[in-house]
Structure formats: structure tokens, C-alpha cells
């Protein structure tokens, strides 16, 4: 069976979730590999969530918020941006591949773009192969 990546998408309620809804209402077709979790703002996305998803076996984590300047909560997306910057560094130190975690700005009108982001990310992760974190942790235990 071919490897089908599973991507957890954390979407802000106002732009990106609406954008994903727009992708739906405009019947934009995109890979089914993304599973969306709605949060009110990208600033609500605790790095813990991303680590949790990765450790639970997500092959990719997508964080989407409003474009800079468009945040429904004024600057929530900047907060997400800062956290993402540091998280990226940390994940690099922890040996997690760059492409697994991605931050994208998707506005409420970018249904099509949302679809493109998903397609692109799915493809990149497909190339990357499955996330080994959970498997490795199980293996660690078995080897011990």
C-alpha cells in the first residue's frame, strides 16, 4: 500500500478555516491527507500541539493563519510567526525534517490557494516518507 501522509492542520477560525471552507464551497479538489483542527487564532497554537501531533504519528503539521496584517485578533499571526521561528530551530535540533512542519498564511478568500498548499505539502511529505517518531519510540522500547 502506497504511503499516504497524514497531515494535521491547525487553522485559525477567521481566515484559514474560512479559506478551507471556501475551498469546499468552491469545490476545489485537494488531497484528503489533511485533517483539520480549528483554533480561534494561529496564536492559540501552542508548540505543544505540534509536538503532540508529531509524536502521535502525524507525518506533517500545517499551521495556517491570516496573512500578516489581516489577523482578526490584530497581531495573533505575528505571535504564531515568532513561535514558529523558534520552534523550527528547536525541531531542527531534534532532527525533525524541515518540511514536516509548515506555517502558511491563508486568507478567507484563498480557497484555491489552500488546496494548493495542501497538495504541495502532501507531495513534499510523500517524498519525505513517513514520520518515524512514533515508530522509533516504539522501537526504542522494544530494543531496550
Amino acid at each position: 500500500m502506497a504511503f499516504e501522509p497524514r497531515i494535521v492542520g491547525f487553522l485559525c477560525n477567521w481566515c484559514s478555516y474560512t479559506g478551507a471552507d471556501l475551498a469546499g464551497t468552491s469545490r476545489v479538489k485537494y488531497p484528503f491527507n489533511v485533517r483539520i483542527i480549528r483554533v480561534m487564532c494561529s496564536a492559540r497554537i501552542d508548540p505543544t500541539f505540534i509536538l503532540k501531533a508529531l509524536s502521535d504519528g502525524a507525518d506533517g503539521v500545517l499551521v495556517c493563519g491570516c496573512h500578516p496584517g489581516d489577523c482578526h485578533y490584530v497581531e495573533g499571526n505575528y505571535k504564531a510567526m515568532r513561535r514558529y521561528a523558534l520552534l523550527k530551530k528547536t525541531l531542527r535540533s531534534l532532527g525533525v525534517e524541515e518540511d514536516r512542519v509548515r506555517l502558511e498564511w491563508v486568507s478567507a478568500s484563498e480557497g484555491v490557494r489552500f488546496g494548493e498548499v495542501i497538495a504541495d505539502m502532501t507531495e513534499k511529505i510523500r517524498k519525505l516518507g513517513p514520520n518515524r517518531i512514533k515508530a522509533e519510540l516504539i522501537l526504542d522500547k522494544a530494543e531496550r
Partner: peptide, 22 residues
């Protein structure tokens, strides 16, 4: 939107497939 709720949702969207482990 508590941590617990979102954790539960993360767990929920990531059921562990056997075919997934390479």
C-alpha cells in the same frame, strides 16, 4: 479550546494504521 480538548482531537485525527509503519 482547552489543551485537553485539542489533544483529544489530535489523538482522534491520528489513528495508528498498521500500514503506516514503514
Amino acid at each position: 479550546f482547552t489543551d485537553q480538548q485539542i489533544f483529544a482531537q489530535i489523538e482522534g485525527v491520528l489513528p495508528w494504521h498498521s500500514n503506516h509503519v514503514s
